[in-house]
Design a protein around this nucleic acid. Sequence first.
DNA 1: TTGTATGCGTTATCAC
DNA 2: GTGATAACGCATACAA
Lengths: 336, 336
Amino acid sequence: MRKRETVKRATAKEVAAAAGVSKWTVIRAFTPGSSITEESKRRVMEAAAALNYSPNLLARSLATNSTRQVAVFVDDFANPQKLPVLETLTEQLQAAGLVAMLININNHFDHVHALLHADQRQVDAVILFGTAFRDETLTDRQLGHTLPPMFVLARDSQIEGVPAVVCDAELALRDIVNHLYEKGYRRPAFMSGATALSTALRRKQHFTEFWAEKGIEVVDYLSAEKYSAEAGAISVRNYLSVTAAADRADVLMCENDILAFGAMDEIRGKFGLRIPEEIAIVGFDNYELGGSHAYSLTTYEQPRHEMVRAIIAMILGTVEAETVTLPGKLVIRNST
Amino acid sequence: MRKRETVKRATAKEVAAAAGVSKWTVIRAFTPGSSITEESKRRVMEAAAALNYSPNLLARSLATNSTRQVAVFVDDFANPQKLPVLETLTEQLQAAGLVAMLININNHFDHVHALLHADQRQVDAVILFGTAFRDETLTDRQLGHTLPPMFVLARDSQIEGVPAVVCDAELALRDIVNHLYEKGYRRPAFMSGATALSTALRRKQHFTEFWAEKGIEVVDYLSAEKYSAEAGAISVRNYLSVTAAADRADVLMCENDILAFGAMDEIRGKFGLRIPEEIAIVGFDNYELGGSHAYSLTTYEQPRHEMVRAIIAMILGTVEAETVTLPGKLVIRNST
DNA sequence: TTGTATGCGTTATCAC
DNA sequence: GTGATAACGCATACAA
């Protein structure tokens, strides 16, 4: 590792010497709201500008016991929806004077490892962004009581005492089913992804539940190997291949947009069915491409700005840290 | 900001007291390859485990003048291709014992601001990941000579003395044009995105150049408003609307896959043309969805693992820091 | 308002 | 191999 020894950064001490004051006065000049005369401040700032001084945030962190860094754990980079959320997250963190450490959770760097590392780096908080992390490992002896505050974003929390910020699945599915029912659909099907995530299970469960409330007890279930267009295509192909046209669902809800894209391609391309006339499609997430003419996918948008705002408020401590469920919004397009 | 005062972390000093040694011995126990007896090390490790001690990386950074943190500047979250690169980048950084600080460059937080901030945080390096940042601002007085080493990833460097790691555009376009020529296409068209980025211009320029080498001097140029499917669709719609079938290109290369998706949808959906029989399509980036049955898009894949490896090697100083151009790979599918 | 002493937790360097 | 001294750059508490 090349160290940063090109040109030493100026320190408060040096600025103090140049300005003819003590280094503590320099600190004050850079501390908003501290008592210092205009004159002193002006001289300090002048000297600072000349020496190109700016406070060393590392040293400040050590002294204040607060790094203003937040570790963000991500373990599913395959989901393109992560990107806009990361954008929102970094933007709002930065606006709050915080900065994101992006941690890739994978086979070589698991949650426990990452948590230990983030802890050593003294981060002010850890955001589990849609990662599958359960309680068990946390009770290990190796993890002390000194862990940074943790928060779960966009997934249910499976850890005792760790709050989550999620989109209201019940409301979402209620809106979706109501919409489909009003449109006249009566034979629903649901395609789920591979995982047994509680968030995913909940969508399926509410889907079933709300159809039942309408008196529709028969729901077909499809499942895809993973969250990819190809997997969605394969899943729907299997379904359509073994299902007589008369028995076929008239609307298929996919657990996310990516699955829906694959399903739509297959339905139109391979089976020559019209969407939504012969089978309607619903996705989840409102991924950008769904708005294009080709897909025009009815979907549900999670309130990512509000979710991020909520989690940051908890981190800052401006609101109590407790699980929050926020309403999203149904986006109706031509696929239903 | 809630500080981390729940339970104070154990320090080397406390571990030393518990183990009956000096704190420097504790440090040695945690420093691979330092001279310490097995017995001392064992006792230290025992005490450390009991007290749940682990070294404070913040304090270490201050003392060693090396944070092992790398700031990654991103200003275009709309491009979904950023995500897999971020995955690769974080994975390899972590494998090298480094960690990524993800910085969102936007209207509220520009490059200069971000650079100053990263500098204050004492990052070991800054990666400009596909951001549009030019030299001018850098010569400002406000930016000292103390800036961290900078590197540009996936775009040409426009800053004097700052190396870049890019995909070889010349080779890429040569491969693409050769492939198209062999397939028998003779009427090429090129769709560019909105920006006047040198990387983008270069693709267009080489595209033209290599067709000229084949004796084909006529190339149609389309331009999209931005890098979105919708913009690609609009662009190709305008083109096809004003171009007689006889004058139409027989192959359209789009500057990236997203534009290509939009173009393909429009070409098939609105104009009822067959791909590739009536018009072939080429993209760039090998975005995942392009592999799906519906698109099956011929495209070009940037060598992201090698690119990331190269930039990290420069950061670590294991290779000289200089601009590197790496070969990607043509991915041939059914759209050509 | 300003200056002084002390602490944050670690590493580097030198004696022993 | 081990302990001690100094230093990293800043913040807090207190005295002037």
